[in-house]
């Protein structure tokens, strides 16, 4: 009956009751991989030979430039992935559960910048630890929401 009437008077307008993004596509792996890459590049840069034949020196310079580029790119990627989790995934109820979440994300994203500016293995290790701490928080909140 309703369908017949609506065929005459027209279909109703659509009203949206959606989530912006389907659940479950937030992942911590990209930020973890990026942080690990930053650490790996830092190690490699520090291990580059500083002297040798002209050809060896040239080769080392070439590697140096490439490693710095990869370090730069992955530090930026890491920052971006962390900020996506921060702005889009985490919600006020997560903050109640982990009151230092803002502080942790702030510190970790600042470490991304520090790792761009410096070739510093300690900073790279700190970044990796900071990212895995945020990943742990993510997993805990994620589990809680998907366990029932």
């Amino acid at each position: 009956m309703i369908r017949i009437i609506e065929r005459l008077i027209g279909e109703p307008r659509t009203v949206y009751a959606h989530c912006d993004i389907p659940c479950g596509i937030y992942k911590t792996q990209p930020s973890l991989t990026a942080a690990e890459t930053v650490e790996m590049m830092t190690q490699k840069i520090l291990a580059l030979p500083i002297d040798g034949t002209p050809q060896e020196v040239l080769q080392a310079r070439n590697s140096f430039v490439r490693m710095v580029m990869v370090k730069e790119e992955h530090a930026e990627l890491c920052k971006r992935e962390l900020l996506i989790l921060w702005t889009d995934y985490f919600k006020p109820e997560h903050l109640k559960q982990f009151p230092d979440l803002h502080e942790k994300v702030w510190a970790a994203t600042k470490l991304c910048s520090k790792n761009k500016r410096e070739v510093n293995l300690d900073a790279a290790k700190e970044l990796k630890a900071a990212v895995s701490e945020i990943a742990d928080i993510f997993e805990k909140t994620h589990e809680a929401e998907h366990s029932h």
Partner: peptide, 10 residues
């Protein structure tokens, strides 16, 4: 006004 719901948020 008539509306049709799209999505599961409600």
């Amino acid at each position: 006004m008539r509306f049709v719901v799209s999505g599961e948020s409600m």
